[in-house]
């Protein structure tokens, strides 16, 4: 079965490999150019000054070249983020969904099933080969991303959170989910183009919903009195809240009712930062990866049931 998949898709595998190599090479070139620029304009010192000055509210004193490099880094980082966040989506939409959809459209799955291959083995081999290939490609890209990430950590005041979505742990979770989702939607829908579209819509929806609604609450945030975005340092700053004199959190409505037109200090109310501490970064990565791996397992169960009870033996 592995031989058959290799013979059928070897040109396709080569094309994907070339794409991953091109992406990795682009990342490394971009990193080399940006690292040189950061070093030549002494951006490290500028970032240090900015960090100190933000806390003291004084005017930054970096050179124009350093500011330009920082701007350029932010633009490049956004592009890298988009490209790497999109890579699992590409794998799901353009590798996994067509791999299954074309087979079902052409009816060649029945050719294989009427040899001595069971439908379940057929499905699992396709999932395993597709996941294996996608993992290899993702690993290649993830390794090439490491220098860029270290660059980012230095520029973002030592925080890993801004590049959270590029870290190789969650990238594995996204990639596994995207690939299994692509295979599963194609199995259920049985049409390549429709499956590709469905994979894209579902993947983007799930990723966005998780990032906005669930990720900040994976662990209860910590409230630090007096902390602001500027003084959050390496922590993930989620927002501000209000505390009363006993340290209890107040809602904005409660604050309005208590304070009226007076001052916060007069009522013993203080501002506090809501953060996820820097030390939780890897715990978050592990939890999010587990959630996406769980979603992938759910998709796989759907595909398995569909093949076993619908396609193979109605």
């Amino acid at each position: 079965m592995t031989w058959l998949l290799y013979r059928l898709y070897r040109r396709w595998v080569m094309a994907w490999l070339m794409l991953a190599i091109a992406l990795a090479a682009t990342l490394l070139i971009l990193w080399a150019v940006m690292a040189r620029s950061i070093s030549s304009h002494d951006v490290q010192s500028c970032v240090g000054m900015l960090a100190r000055e933000q806390t003291t509210s004084s005017i930054p004193t970096c050179s124009p070249g350093a500011f330009a490099t920082l701007d350029s880094f932010q633009t490049s980082n956004a592009a890298v983020l988009a490209a790497l966040e999109g890579f699992p989506l590409l794998l799901g939409m353009f590798m996994a969904a067509p791999l299954m959809g074309r087979e079902l459209e052409a009816g060649t799955h029945r050719l294989v099933w009427t040899q001595s291959v069971t439908p379940v083995r057929w499905l699992l081999m396709r999932v395993a080969c597709c996941l294996g290939l996608a993992s290899g490609l993702s690993a290649l890209v993830a390794v090439a991303t490491l220098p860029w990430l270290s660059l980012g950590t230095n520029v973002w005041f030592g925080s890993k959170w801004p590049d959270y979505d590029l870290s190789f742990v969650v990238v594995i979770g996204y990639e596994v989910f995207a690939v299994v989702l692509g295979l599963s939607t194609a199995t259920v829908i049985g049409r390549t183009v429709a499956a590709m579209a469905a994979t894209g819509v579902i993947w983007v929806s799930v990723r966005a919903a998780f990032e906005i609604l669930m990720r900040p609450h994976l662990m209860a945030p910590v409230i630090v009195k007096g902390m602001t975005a500027a003084s959050a340092g390496a922590n993930w700053f989620l927002g501000i809240t209000y505390l009363d004199s006993t340290g209890h959190v107040l809602t904005p409505a409660q604050v309005s009712a208590l304070v009226g037109s007076g001052s916060l200090d007069g009522h013993g109310i203080s501002l506090a930062g809501v953060v996820q501490p820097d030390g939780r970064f890897w715990a978050f990565q592990t939890m999010e990866t587990a959630v996406f791996a769980g979603l992938a397992l759910g998709c796989l169960l759907v595909a398995y049931s569909w093949v076993k009870f619908r396609l193979a033996s109605q």
Binding site: M1, W3, L4, R7, V112, Q115, S116, V117
Partner: peptide, 9 residues
């Protein structure tokens, strides 16, 4: 035919 050989004992 090679596929047939590999998939059938």
């Amino acid at each position: 035919l090679e596929m047939g050989r590999r998939l059938n004992s």
